[in-house]
Design a binder for these strands. Structure first.
Lengths: 335, 335
DNA sequence: AATGGCATTGTAAGCGTTTGCAATTTACTG
DNA sequence: CAGTAAATTGCAAACGCTTACAATGCCATT
C-alpha cells in the first residue's frame, strides 16, 4: 500500500541530507555517486515510497519516454497485431504507448499527430492505408521522428517497414493463374490509395502481363473491409464469370467464400480465393483460407526498433524496410 | 508546415505585449479577457504556430488529460472492442489513452499500474479476467480513480461495469437444457479466477439445480483462450459423453466445433454449443455460433464515462454497473 | 468629483525534475 | 606533507505552464 500523497525528490534529499542533484543521480542510475550514499538514498526512497514524477521529469529533460501510435482501428485484427509488436518492443526499451484510433480519417489523423506532438512524445508510429498529402505534411512538421508501419507513402520520404506488396500480390496471382484461371477478380480498397493503385494493382497486372492475359477492369472491385462487404461483392464477382479472387482483407475473403458456398459453388474446385493478411480468420473457417503470409507482429516490432534508433539519433542505413512475405497455401486454393 | 522549435507561451505574450497569465487565460478559454486582447492573442498564436506544451501544463496544473488503460492483450478481439468503446468516449472528453498489455500476468499488471501512476494519469481503466489480491492493493493505493471494465473483483471494492455473468450463463444453460441435454460440458479458464469460479460456474450450477440435474465435475474443463485449445479439448469433451458445451471464449468454441464436425458430428443436431463473447468469430463460421450477447463496446464506453465522473469528483450513485446481455441464437443450437 | 465595485490584467510563486558548472572531498604522487 | 588530479557533491537556473492574489482601469453612482 503506497501513500496517496507521493513523496517528492525533495523529501528524499532532505531525509538523507543530500542535495536534489544527488538523489536525481541515483534515481537515474548514472553518473558517479559514492556507494555508501547511493545506498542511503535508495533506502530513503524505499521508506518514503518515492516514485519519480514522470511529468516533471519530462519537462526538465525534454524526453517523455512515451511514443504515439496512430492506427485506423484497434479492433481490426491486422492492425492490432502490428500494435502488439510495437508495444512489446516499446516496453523493451521502456517506452509507453499513447494510442489513437483514426478510422483512416485524414482529419483525425492530422489531429492525432498534432495532439501527440503537443504531448511531447519522443516518437510516433503511424499506420493507415493511405497517407493523405496533408497528413504527410503535418507529420514532417512534427518535431519527433515518425515511422510508418504497414503503410506506404508514395513519395517514400518517411521511414517505413512493410512487405513487398507488388511482389506478394504478383506471386499470389501467379499461383492462381498456374491453376488455370484467367479471369481472376481483385478486390481492394479505393484505387486512389497508393497501396491499392500503386502496389496491389501493379502486382496484379504484372502477373497478368507475364501470363499474357489481358487486363479487364470489370474484374476490379473496391469494397469496405468487413464481412458484410464480402457477402455483397460476391454476387457481382460471380456475375463477371470470374473463377478466382484475390482480396485485400480477410473478412471480405471469408464473406465471399461463404456467399459462394451458399450458392452452390465448391471451394476451391469451382472458385479459388487468396487473401492478404493471414489473420486468425483464415484459420478458423472451413475450408481455411489461402493467404499471403505477412509477418505482422514483426512489422510492428521492427518499426518500433527503428523508431528507437531514430529517437536516439542513430543513423539508419536503410529507411525503407521490406520484410519477407510468404504464400500460405490452405483450403481455398488447389494443390 | 509548422516550425520545428515551437514557440512558448512567453513568445506569444511578448509579441502581443501582455503577460503570460493573459495568454494562458485565452488558451484555456476561460475567465474574462477583453475581446480585443483575446483577438490579438489568438492572432499571435496563429502567427507563431504556438501549441501549448502539454507536459508543462501537466506539471503546473496537476492534470495530464491522459488516462491509462490496462488490458490483457490488444490482439484479443473481445478486449479490443472494449478498448474501442473506451477510446471513443475518452476522446469525446479530450483524454488521451496510454495503453498497456499485460497478458494477465499479475506482475506486469502491477508494474503497469505503478507506471501509469508515475506518469500522472488522471485515471485508469483496468481489464483482466482476474484481480490478483496484490493487484487490487496497488490499484487502491494509486492516487487516481480506477474503474474495471469487463472484470470483477471479488470484494467489489472497485467501481466496475460488466454484464451479469451468473445470469447470462444460467440462461444459456437453460436454453441448452430445454433442448433436452443433460450432459453439458462447461469450458472456462482457471476456476480460481473469480469470474470463472464465482460467476460462470455458479450460473451453470444454478441452472443444473433448477433442472434437477446432478453436477458432474468431469464435465468441467479449463483451457487457454485460443483456437488450438478448442481443438484439443474437444476430444476430451466427446469422451465424457457430453452432448453440448458452454464455452468462455469464442475461438475455443470454434475449435471445438471444427473438431467435432471433422469427426463426423452434426452441429447442432448431435452437439450444441453456446459461447460467451459474441465476437466476429461467431459470425463468419458455418454454422454461426450461438452466443451470449455482450454489449462489449458499451461496457468500455460506460466504464470510461464513469471514470470521467470520478476524475471530476462527481459522486456516483451506482458503482457496480451491470449492462444487459442477450442470447444470440445462431446455428450451433437448435431452434 | 469622490467612491465603490466589477472587469481586466499583471506578478510571481510554484509544479518536481534535470543538469552544467562550481565547490568540496578524497586519493595519489613524489 | 604539499600539490594535483579525480571523484563526489551541491547550487541554482532552467523546463513551459497555471493560478492565487494584487494591482490597475473603467464606469456608474451619489
Amino acid at each position: 500500500m503506497q501513500k496517496k500523497n507521493s513523496a517528492t525528490i525533495y523529501d528524499v534529499a532532505h531525509r538523507v541530507g543530500v542535495s536534489l542533484a544527488t538523489v536525481s543521480r541515483v534515481v537515474n542510475g548514472n553518473s558517479n555517486v559514492r556507494d555508501s550514499t547511493k545506498r542511503k538514498v535508495l533506502d530513503a526512497i524505499e521508506e518514503l515510497g518515492y516514485h519519480p514524477n514522470a511529468v516533471a521529469r519530462g519537462l526538465a529533460s525534454k524526453k517523455t519516454t512515451t511514443i504515439g501510435v496512430v492506427m485506423p482501428d484497434i479492433t481490426d485484427v491486422y492492425y492490432s497485431e502490428l500494435a502488439r509488436g510495437i508495444d512489446d518492443v516499446a516496453n523493451m526499451y521502456h517506452y509507453d504507448v499513447l494510442l489513437t484510433n483514426t478510422d483512416e480519417d485524414p482529419v483525425r489523423e492530422t489531429m492525432a499527430v498534432n495532439n501527440l506532438a503537443s504531448k511531447q512524445v519522443d516518437g510516433i508510429i503511424f499506420m493507415g492505408n493511405e497517407l493523405d498529402h496533408e497528413v504527410v505534411n503535418t507529420i514532417s512538421g512534427v518535431n519527433a521522428p515518425v515511422v510508418l508501419a504497414g503503410s506506404v507513402d508514395s513519395e517514400k520520404k518517411l521511414p517505413s517497414v512493410n512487405i513487398d506488396y507488388v511482389e506478394a500480390i504478383k506471386e499470389a496471382m501467379e499461383a492462381v493463374i498456374k491453376n488455370g484461371h484467367d479471369r481472376v477478380a481483385i478486390v481492394t480498397g479505393p484505387v486512389e490509395h497508393a497501396i491499392n493503385g500503386m502496389h496491389r494493382l501493379v502486382g496484379y497486372k504484372k502477373a497478368l502481363e507475364e501470363a499474357q492475359i489481358e487486363f479487364d477492369d470489370s474484374l476490379l472491385f473496391s469494397t469496405h473491409q468487413d464481412y458484410a462487404a464480402g457477402l455483397q461483392v460476391a454476387e457481382k464477382i460471380l456475375a463477371t464469370g470470374a473463377t478466382a479472387a484475390l482480396t485485400y482483407d480477410d473478412e471480405v475473403a471469408v464473406g465471399i467464400m461463404n456467399y459462394l458456398r451458399d450458392h452452390g459453388k465448391k471451394i476451391p474446385e469451382d472458385f479459388e480465393i487468396i487473401t492478404s493478411n493471414d489473420t486468425k480468420f483464415t484459420i478458423i473457417t472451413r475450408p481455411q483460407v489461402t493467404s499471403i503470409g505477412q509477418p505482422k507482429y514483426d512489422i510492428g516490432a521492427v518499426a518500433m526498433r527503428m523508431l528507437t534508433k531514430l529517437m536516439n539519433n542513430e543513423t539508419i542505413e536503410l529507411t525503407q524496410v521490406k520484410l519477407p512475405h510468404t504464400l500460405e497455401r490452405r483450403g481455398t486454393t488447389l494443390n
